[in-house]
Write a protein that binds this DNA or RNA. Structure first.
Lengths: 143, 143
DNA sequence: CCAGATTGCATTTCTTGCTATTCATACCTA
DNA sequence: TAGGTATGAATAGCAAGAAATGCAATCTGG
């Protein structure tokens, strides 16, 4: 019995994720942000002032992961935690001017990373690739 | 200007990788191994007694990452570091009986995870998916 | 209205990736 | 053959994921 990593989806996904992560790191470093902060920033650029719980649900990460990511973002001057107006337990996550100011450059950087990664694929293949990933994610989530 | 995460390849790859990782964790936990050890085990099951440097090149991780992974594997009784017969700097990584004994179960677990993840894809789509990932990896590596 | 259950978040500890640094051995060249 | 450079590996420290635990605020059923 044997097993070929180079044609195993899980193995390839892991490898691909590490490569994307590092490529994104190189592109956004000048902006003062790092790859782990990117998903949270995307959600907050889309809608500022969400609770931590809302971010946890949207990004599908654990609450502890989100709390630590927000700690680093606060340390880096990207967000502020403000008191929730009606719920004393909750906090409202608000972007700083610094975070707002790099939004368009960050979008461009992310698009460029995707372009680099998918350079050898036709536009039909790119669409199909995205569709296959979305379906794979749904299959894994529904467990 | 806006940016849609749910159709961004990089975003989806990251999400998918986390889901695969956790699914694999659940499946191999009974075997006494964890997902981070899987790639090294695959390489060693294929060919026991490789140097750390050989593993680093095959798995495309940094040398320090490999050293730390091997530390945990040694701690967990999966491998032994033996002296290289001719190169005093190098070490030979050898599997223990414990690691050898779970090989087939681990192969089955990995195959099962792939099946779960790709459950909604036809066999043609699965092949295409693997091909798209391989081409994406090559594009990112050639930089 | 209040006691218990639930909820939102913080903290700690572990894993797995990375860089940077250090150390010892090996190799080469003058 | 001595000195300088290469190379293989270990270690320390940071990032970003997770689980487990604890706390304080909120809700809810009697």
């Amino acid at each position: 019995m044997s097993f070929d990593p180079s044609s195993s989806a899980g193995y390839l996904v892991n490898h691909m994720a590490r490569l994307f992560f590092e490529e994104l790191r190189n592109h956004i470093q000048p902006l003062g942000i790092v790859p782990g902060q990117f998903p949270a920033l995307l959600a907050l650029w889309e809608q500022d002032g969400q609770t931590q719980k809302a971010l946890v649900e949207k990004l599908d990460v654990e609450q502890a992961t989100m709390a630590n990511t927000l700690n680093r973002m606060e340390r880096d001057g990207l967000v502020l935690r403000k008191d929730h107006p009606t719920d004393g337990r909750a906090k409202i996550i608000c972007l700083t001017e610094k975070a707002r100011s790099v939004r368009n450059e960050a979008y461009a950087a992310a698009a460029e990373v995707n372009d680099i990664a998918l350079a050898e694929l036709s536009s039909e293949e790119r669409e199909l690739f995205v569709d296959l990933m979305q379906r794979t994610i749904r299959a894994l989530q529904s467990r």
